[in-house]
Amino acid sequence: MGITVSNISKSYKGVKALQDISFEVKPNELFGLIGPDGAGKTTLFRILTTLLIADKGQASVAGFDVLKDFKDIRKHVGYMPGRFSLYQDLTVEENLEFFATIFGTTIEENYDLIKDIYVQIEPFKDRRAGKLSGGMKQKLALSCALIHKPKVLFLDEPTTGVDPVSRKEFWDMLKRLQQKNITILVSTPYMDEAALCDRIALIQDGQILQIDTPEAIVKQYPKTIYNVSANNMYQLINSLKDYQYQHSVYPFGEFVHYTDVRNDFKINDLKMYLEAEKLLNIKIEKTQATIEDSFMELAKYPNRTCKLSKT
């Protein structure tokens, strides 16, 4: 069973955290909520896990209404909040036993579901949770969220502050969990993780910018992007921003991603301008759009290409 969100809004002291949010997560889908800090991701997760009540709108999780059936939802979902929230003074095994007991089950009963994850931290089962590394804490929190075999799994920025290797391992685990008939809603500020989801919703300032597959969103990017580099990155960015024909200018690793307002843009025109700005070692070449490029474009022009996927 999936998730349905219809026109959900929430404000805090006059500040709109969510504005008419609507989307649907299909059963067994790995759906990503992608956006920066403060976009409204955590507020939405708290509403869907019955920890917070929306000002307006409706939502259902695994077929249960978030208001009328909040007790049923709490039995059938797993929730891993952004901050490590397990008992730091309890050992790894004690934390897992505690959460199993709360849901009226045992580690043994659902061990098959968490086995791939738990075997990595089982050698440290007698270590206090507060003494674990970031990656190990992450695996323990996921094990605790899964121990009662939930129908829907909510993961709020689960890889924030985790090293790249642990991040990759975590997403590999999510793909395996998806094969066990679990619907997964994951939020992240990392644009590269968006490509690992079946579908994504880009969110900014409490509003959905676009919903579609990662591939479709990138494909809909409206302009040609150029990688630009030179001997002085700071000066390069400022010079490009001052260029009268620039549409967008964003740092992107060792390059600057540049788009032009003209349909007849010529690389040599831009190169001559940058040379006149006294920049050296100038390189300009076409490149492919990314999820991050799409997000920046939609955030700048939110009404230009925003639409829901029909798939």
Rank of each mutant, 00 (worst) to 15 (best):
Q244P: 12
I211K: 01
N232T: 01
L236Q: 00
V249E: 07
D293T: 08
V261N: 14
L209M: 05
I225P: 09
E275G: 03
A216E: 03
P222C: 02
D212R: 01
T287Y: 03
T224S: 10
A230K: 00
L270R: 12
D293N: 09
S239E: 05
A230S: 15
T224V: 14
M296A: 01
N268W: 13
E275N: 12
I267W: 04
Y273E: 08
S239C: 11
D212P: 06
T290D: 02
Y221R: 03
I225K: 06
L236F: 08
E277M: 14
V218C: 08
K241Q: 12
T259H: 12
F265S: 09
V228F: 02
Y245I: 00
P222G: 10
L240G: 02
L274Y: 14
S294V: 08
R304S: 13
I284T: 13
M233C: 07
L274P: 14
Q235P: 06
L298W: 04
I237R: 01
D293Y: 12
E292A: 07
K307A: 15
Q246T: 09
A289W: 01
K283L: 12
K300T: 09
L279T: 06
M296P: 01
T224R: 05
S229W: 05
K286S: 13
F295H: 06
L270C: 06
Y234Q: 13
K286M: 04
D260A: 02
V249Q: 01
P251W: 02
L308P: 02
E285G: 13
N232R: 09
I284K: 00
I237D: 07
N232H: 11
F295D: 09
I211L: 09
N303P: 03
N268I: 13
K241T: 11
P214H: 07
Y250R: 04
Y234E: 13
I211R: 02
L308V: 12
V261A: 12
D242E: 14
T213D: 13
P222M: 10
L280S: 14
N303Q: 11
V228T: 02
K223G: 00
A216Y: 06
L308T: 12
A299C: 04
Q288R: 04
F255Q: 14
F255E: 11
L274E: 15
P302R: 08
I217R: 08
E285Y: 03
F265E: 01
S239P: 03
M233P: 05
G206Y: 15
Q220N: 11
P302F: 10
K223R: 07
N232W: 05
N268T: 06
N227F: 04
